[in-house]
Design a protein around this nucleic acid. Structure first.
Lengths: 136, 136
DNA sequence: ATACGTGCAAACGCTTTGCACTCTC
DNA sequence: GAGAGTGCAAAGCGTTTGCACGTAT
């Protein structure tokens, strides 16, 4: 269940591909999928491969140049408590804790002022290191 | 990109399998994966299949008896804005909007009182229907 | 009797990876 | 020229699905 760090090169190089991917990422607010980015970059670099897109997205995410909107692990996890509550996720071991803290008052109402969608619920999740992973 | 509703039966039946899955789900706070639940239920119903577990988890989630901790869509989406900010996710069409709202003050400090992990960041996401999907 | 649920295995589809080659530094 | 990055294709792997059979109502 542990989320392993993989080996990273000692330094990063500038390549057309990486630059183009970052440019596409910066240029859109659509929260694109890897494949959408691939199609877009292909207009400029027709022979780029999807694998390269994935590799660079991962690197850019690790460098803090982008965010990947998904969970660290590849599979879904289920919570048998259907009530709205918050979670703490350990970014190292993947462990998820329920937080017993009270819900933040008026959060959805506040957010409603910033979108014209209809808000029906929310999800709040804290990330960091659990006690065990922090200790080592 | 649209998240389709699939056909549901007109009524649900009680089965040993469904009951066992729900019981396992209720019994743990570990936010298990489908496979973990499968292994657990297998102790009681050795011939249950993983497909059945997935099917029931989906149904239980739709019935509001459990939560699935992942995004509605199966692929990752990327955000070229690396700053911490909140999102609005349309549960119908999958569209994701950036919210320009200010960060909630003191949120991580508050949460830190309820866990012994070290909090380093958080993620807040509002769900509902975007304007277009709400209108139809 | 009806039609929902299950087991099994194959199919799916997004993502990752091995390998030989290319390109930065 | 060392080693990081790329393209291609195959492999990985969690999840879904088709089908024939079982079973709750």
């Amino acid at each position: 269940m542990s989320i392993q760090q993989q080996k990273r090169p000692r330094f990063l190089r500038h390549t057309r591909q990486r630059e183009a991917i970052l440019r596409v990422l910066r240029m859109t607010h659509e929260h694109p999928t890897a494949d959408w980015i691939y199609q877009e970059v292909r207009k400029e670099i027709p022979h780029i491969s999807l694998g390269t897109v994935y590799r660079n997205l991962k690197i850019l995410t690790e460098m803090g140049e982008a965010q990947e909107m998904s969970y660290g692990s590849s599979y879904s996890r289920y919570d048998g408590d259907p009530r709205l509550h918050y979670h703490f996720v350990c970014d190292d071991c993947g462990r998820i804790e329920d937080l017993e803290m009270p819900l933040v008052e008026g959060l959805e109402a506040k957010a409603a002022e910033w979108t014209d969608g209809r808000i029906e619920s929310h999800r709040l999740e804290f990330h960091g290191l659990c006690r065990e992973c922090n200790g080592r």
